[in-house]
Design a protein around this nucleic acid. Structure first.
Lengths: 357, 357
DNA sequence: ATTAGCACTCTTGATAGGTGAGTGCTAATT
DNA sequence: AATTAGCACTCACCTATCAAGAGTGCTAAT
């Protein structure tokens, strides 16, 4: 219905669907005879062969060599995902198991990310990627200064989106914890909910003013804060958490180390992912990019299923799965969709309607 | 000198050394002819063959098959490490490069760990592992309570050893930031530098007292703190940071995915590592365990070079390298040793003589 | 003690033949 | 017009065989 140009009759749709499902399951080229036997089709294998040849002519299937069974092309997978696959959500029992695990560790953001990666990787049997949720514009929320010893101070910076940065720095002289706490209080009062840009303005203004409202140490601390926040924004695409290397090792596609190296490069270097993630952040629902549809050559042999998660226009991250084009799309898509809603719910608890103040 | 039983004459020592070096470099079995040609030995290949046969008889070398060159056994590597290898420290230029990188990111502990892993993996061309430094007994240092919204509060817990834990929790009613800060202050004053055990006693005492010195919310928070600290101590062997998968993929030993899976299991599951790390923590200097010397079967094909790093009896972690027994021991050992001193120095800045108060 | 010489062993790579799975086509059937 | 039985054909895959080459181990000479 959606793509009348590529409309197929019922039988061809069924056959294409079966070929995709069978190939995804067994990773073996699918033969005409097997389809007839396994699925009890009431036609002979010769008929199926004719249909397979037609589907190949139309670009949905290929051959590796003359006497091999059929294998879906990227176009075939795309048609399957768009028109043929069952769109059943994740079984309720699985939903419960997953949600339960998240509520078990309802404590730390980092753990949610780890858990999302682990669950995704295990259920999709592929490599999972999760980015930390990021506020659209990071705002200062709170800082603490803690005397470590003598002249060393630990700065703990809490941003509006819940992320925490810590770093140590050295002072010229010694300060007591009381003095540090006092400085922190003064900074917190003046900087609450400010963006980096605003903080920089504030800082510049104060430096030029004849009577500064900040002490020297407070200036230094704010400098650190500004630098940390900038650094943070630059890291947007960095820090992609991944899991499931063990899983992909079991996929026959990764029997040769060359493929493993490729995937490792994609996940670590992230050139190919780098462009997909902002795209997914800007979209709603689950995005599926199949093999040759990728704009980056290095990803032409892989498929990616991504979804944004987060709270409206407040804070958002991306999670998804990378695997060979021979991927269990229905299951992967519903898992990605479900986990993204769970993560969104969890974030929602953190940032209610008032936007996290 | 050290092991008179296994004392070898000069020529055999030289030949064993050359075989090990040659095999480590080329990963090809070493032939008698090659040794003569490449190293200009003033004897014939037949003589070398006799010596090789003798070294094999003594257990230092093997054969894969009759017409193959010699390969060191684990015993051979051990003798090499103990008696033959050059013990030159890392070249000063490399030392400077490495130290420079650490001072570049002199901010966050997590970054030191990451950097140590990255540098180790790259220079040793193998898998690097780094555990976070842990205080021998974790003590409470400081906590902060930050109002996220309505009833949700972010608890930031700073431990004595510089580690930071964060988690959110919900309150019954609403509290202002001022109230929360006040509670935090009260807890901080009473709990500073206490161990978990002591905190629990304090908490129990206070609960039984007719007039409690803590408010209800403060009890709840302290409960969370105690639980977090316990959880933290249980995690001792967890959270091993690793790096260098890309590196090991280039080693010919890992041409088959079976080996990759093995190594991944060692690093992730850490059964084999689990017993080595406490051992390394309790020792001084660099520990080398070669192949069959491992007590865990799963590690019999790998060698491990580990070193403790840290400050005296205050805080310590472990870092090292895992690779095939065919490993560049001199280089790996000096790198591990050097990076452990750098990390120790950095930690020393954090915990000076007074023990980090 | 050393070494030249040589037989012997075992890997590696190439080649060839056999097998079987699966297609594509043709002609017969419904 | 669609379906199908029948069969030739193709190609990957496996196995066997062979030749070449590398390297050892031994023997006998130095």
């Amino acid at each position: 219905m959606r793509v009348p140009l590529l409309e197929l009759n019922e039988r061809r749709r069924l056959i294409l669907k079966l070929v995709v499902q069978e190939y995804v399951e067994t990773s073996q080229p699918v033969a005409s005879e097997l389809l007839v036997r396994k699925y009890g089709l009431n036609v002979s294998s010769a008929t199926i062969r004719n249909e397979l040849a037609a589907l190949e002519e139309l670009g949905f299937l290929t051959h590796l060599h003359t006497s091999a069974g059929r294998v879906p092309t990227d176009v075939g997978y795309r048609y399957f995902v768009a028109n043929l696959m069952d769109r059943t959500p994740l079984p309720v029992t699985e939903q419960r198991t997953i949600r339960h695990q998240f509520y078990q560790v309802r404590t730390e953001l980092d753990q949610w990310i780890q858990l999302a990666g682990a669950v995704l990787a295990r259920t999709a049997q592929n490599l999972a990627v999760v980015t930390a949720p990021r506020a659209y514009q990071s705002r200062f929320k709170h800082l603490e200064l803690i005397a470590i010893h003598d002249t060393t101070v630990l700065l703990v910076l809490v941003l509006h989106d819940g992320t925490i940065r810590q770093q140590t720095f050295s002072l010229e002289g010694t300060r007591s914890q009381e003095e540090l706490s006092h400085s922190a209080l003064r900074i917190n009062q003046r900087s609450h909910d400010q963006t980096v840009v605003r903080l920089e303005e504030l800082l510049a203004l104060d430096r030029n003013a004849s009577v500064s409202s900040f002490e020297e140490i407070e200036h230094d601390v704010l400098d650190l804060v500004v630098r940390a926040m900038h650094q943070f924004e630059d890291q947007l695409n960095q820090g992609i958490h991944s899991d499931g290397l063990m899983e992909v090792l079991n996929q026959p596609e990764f029997a040769q180390i060359g493929r493993i190296r490729q995937v490792l490069e994609i996940v670590q270097g992230g050139r190919g992912l780098g462009s997909l993630i902002p795209q997914a952040l800007a979209s709603d629902g689950v995005q599926v990019v199949i093999g040759g549809e990728h704009s980056h050559d290095e990803m032409r042999e892989y498929s990616v299923v991504l979804s944004r998660y987060g709270v409206d226009d407040t804070v958002a991250g991306v999670l998804g799965v990378i695997g060979p084009t021979r991927m269990a799309y229905p299951r992967t898509i519903s898992t990605v969709r479900y986990i993204s809603t769970v993560m969104s719910d969890l974030l929602g608890d953190l940032y209610s309607a008032d936007g996290g103040r």
